[in-house]
Design a protein around this nucleic acid. Structure first.
Lengths: 214, 214
DNA sequence: CCCAATAACTTTACACCGTTAAATTAACAG
DNA sequence: CTGTTAATTTAACGGTGTAAAGTTATTGGG
C-alpha cells in the first residue's frame, strides 16, 4: 500500500530498517548470510525495494560500514581525555583500544579493513575525512604528530605518515591473523592478549628514541 | 569418450589440468572469477567432472593453496645458505623475502592468509607440518629459535612462539593492508617498500636486546 | 469531483553460482 | 557378443545479485 510522497523522515526510517536488518543478519549469521533476499525477507519487503534506497549490495554494506567507522573513531576519543599521561602511554592505549574493537566485532572488522573495496567508495562516505572525531586514521595521525613534536621517536624517523602507518600495520597484523586464522591449528597460537601486548611494546620500543643511559 | 580404468598417471594429469585452469583464472581475473563452471569451460570439460577429483570448491582451492605454501617455503630456503651473516641480518632477509612473496602474488596471499578456512583443512594437506623445507612457519620458528639461543632477544622475552608470531604479524600487517587497501585513497599511503622496511627495523629494534652502550 | 500522473512497491525474469542425481557413453572382462 | 562399470555429461535444485516491467493507491491539477 504505497503512499505518494513519503516524507524524508519516512524514507530515512525505511533506510534504517534495511540497515538494521542487514546488521542483525551480519552479526547473527556472519557476512555470507547477508544476502539482499535475506535482508528483505527479514524486514518483510520484497528484495528489489532495497534498490530504491541503495545502489547495490556494496553500497548498502559500505553504508553499514560507515557507521562502524564512526563507532571505532568514537571508541578512541576517550583516550585523549586523560591527557595527563605521557604520549607513549596514550599510544599504548590507542593500540589496546583498536585491537579491542577489532576483536569484539570481527565480522565488521573483516569488511572494514580486510576486504578490497571499489574505488568510488570515498566520495559517498558521510565520514568527514581528516576529522579527528570521525576518522580513526586521522586520530592516530594526530597522536603520532604530537609524539613527533615531543621528539619521542628515533631521530632518523622523519615521516609522520610512515610512522602512523607502521603502527597501524603492526596492530592490524595481529588482529587480522587472529580473525583469519583463529580456527587454524597448524600454528601453536599464543594467547591473543599476549600477542597484542608484545606487538604494542615492540612497536613502541622499535620506534621510540631510547632513553639516554646514565 | 571415457576409457575404462584410467591409469593413476592419467588421473593425476587431469587433476593437474583442473588445478592449472583454476590457477590461471585466479591469476588472470582474480579470485571472484574462479568458479567451477569457469574452470570447466576453460579446460573444455563439464563442471561436474571436477567433482570426481575434488570434494568441492574449497577442496580445490585448498589444494591450489598447498602448492603456494610450498613455493613460499621454498623461496625462504636460500636465506639459510648464506649463514655466515649474523642471525638478525637473516631475520631481516626473512621479512623481505616474505613480503616480496605476498606482494608478488596478492591473490594467492589473500586466499592463504586473509580468508578464514574450514577447520578440517589441515588433515588433508600434503605439506608436512613442522618440516622446515615445506612449512614457512616452521622455518620462521627455527630461525627465531636460533636467535633465541644466541640470546639476541630482550631478556624478558622467553616465549619463542610468541616472538615468531609477533614478527609474522608485523610483516603480515603491512602486506595485508597493502593488498586490501591499495585502491583506497583515504589514507596518504607511503611507499610500500618504506613501510616494509620500517616495520622490519622496528620489529628488530623492538624485540632485540639493545647492544650494551660503552 | 474525477482523472491522469507518479511514488512506492512487487512480480517476473535473467544470468550467474555450487552441487547432486540421473542419464549416457565407451572400453573392458568373461 | 554381452553385461559391467568407470568416465563423463545433462538436467535439475536452490541459491545469488540485479534489471525491467507491472501493479497499486494516493495525490495534484483541471
Amino acid at each position: 500500500m504505497p503512499r505518494r510522497h513519503k516524507t524524508p523522515e519516512e524514507r530515512q526510517r525505511l533506510k534504517m530498517l534495511i540497515l538494521d536488518a542487514a546488521r542483525q543478519l551480519f552479526i547473527e549469521r556472519g557476512i555470507e548470510a547477508v544476502s539482499m533476499r535475506e535482508i528483505a525477507k527479514r524486514m518483510a519487503y520484497s528484495p528489489t525495494t532495497i534498490y530504491l534506497h541503495f545502489a547495490d549490495k556494496n553500497d548498502l554494506l559500505q553504508t553499514l560500514c560507515d557507521n562502524d567507522f564512526l563507532i571505532l573513531a568514537n571508541d578512541l576519543q576517550h583516550i585523549n581525555a586523560s591527557s595527563k599521561q605521557d604520549i607513549t602511554e596514550q599510544l599504548r592505549q590507542l593500540c589496546t583500544a583498536y585491537s579491542r574493537y577489532a576483536l569484539a566485532y570481527p565480522n565488521h572488522y573483516r569488511f572494514m579493513f580486510m576486504t578490497p573495496k571499489p574505488v568510488n567508495s570515498k566520495e559517498k562516505s558521510r565520514i568527514r575525512q581528516g576529522n579527528v572525531e570521525q576518522d580513526a586514521y586521522a586520530f592516530l595521525r594526530s597522536m603520532v604528530t604530537q609524539a613527533f613534536e615531543q621528539q619521542v621517536f628515533r631521530p632518523e624517523l622523519q615521516n609522520i605518515d610512515l610512522i602512523a602507518q607502521t603502527m597501524w600495520a603492526g596492530i592490524h597484523g595481529v588482529c587480522a591473523l587472529e580473525i583469519s586464522m583463529i580456527e587454524d591449528d597448524w600454528v601453536d597460537w599464543q594467547p591473543i592478549e599476549q600477542r597484542v601486548f608484545l606487538m604494542q611494546e615492540a612497536l613502541i620500543q622499535g620506534l621510540v628514541r631510547p632513553r639516554p643511559v646514565h
